[in-house]
Amino acid sequence: MEALFVNLAAVLSGWLTSLGLSPIWADTVLLFVKWIIVITIITLNIIILIWLERKVSAFFQERLGPNRLGPFGIFQTIADAIKLLTKEDIVPSAADKLIFKTAPMFFIVVAVMLYTVIPMGQGMEVINLNIGLLFFISIGSLSTIALLMAGWGSNNKWSLMGAVRSVAQMVSYEIPLAFSLLGVVMISGSLNLQDIVAAQGKLWFIILQPIAFITYFIAATAELNRGPFDMPEAEQELTGGAYTEYTGMRWALFFLAEYTNLVAVSALMATVFLGGWQGPWLPSWLWIIIKTYGVILVFFWVKWTFPRIRMDHLMSFSWKVLVPVSLGNILLTGAGIYFCRWMGWC
């Protein structure tokens, strides 16, 4: 079971070469196959996730949640997807059409790109990039531009306010996000995510880097625009923020992208802090799924419990609390590494 997918890939690659393709072309085809698989997983995942979030929030709020279509309402999301696909696509007449239309595509492309580097199991990643972590952070921050495009293109005050807030928020939270991951990089000595997983063979980084874990979790919540930091969306204040003017499938793309981001960030969290795909008994690809869903459930829990934070508090929290704390954590980690070497433990 462990090497199921790796073996499948090897078989496919062998078959392609036997057909007479040169190894380079076989690799290229294989890359596309991997991409298609990743995208399928993402889509399926999101169908489950949306259903799960509705069920989980219903549980928190003592409601039933979706329960009509299929067992436990599992097909509700599919029905919703069909509805959204068939809805009228409205583009406001005053909108900047090009920007308005490309924003959701840009958002989802950025979100899907994040999956390139995440190790889904032992030897299972689309590309084994040696700057994987850096790639993840830099691609992740691109989604700000998509939100700004959506807000600007809509030509609506609410959308623009949502976009401006999202830029301010994401730029501010980018810094503690990156800083909190630096501690891990210092200990493992690598930006390659597979190396970081391997470095957690004995001890998960959540134990070595508890402060970084907490700051990363908070910063990631803000990066994902999830409650209590869902300022750019803020249905009750900004009537949907940057997404106000979007309908049908364009809106659904934003929605999909948000969940795609959620899975990616949770998977990264599992990889960097929770030992990645490592675990006893079960195959590695199942472990990463279990850990990712565990993190996602915590995100759900936080969102459905907390009220929304105020914009100025949000900013001051980032600059006055998270940034100093994560900087302090880097200092502490460095001192710890020197101490460890001096004692001859590592």
Partner: peptide, 13 residues
């Protein structure tokens, strides 16, 4: 007040 401040669960309570 709960839902206006984003605490959706407060609404249901």
């Amino acid at each position: 007040t709960g839902i206006d401040l984003g605490a959706t669960t407060g609404l249901m309570y």
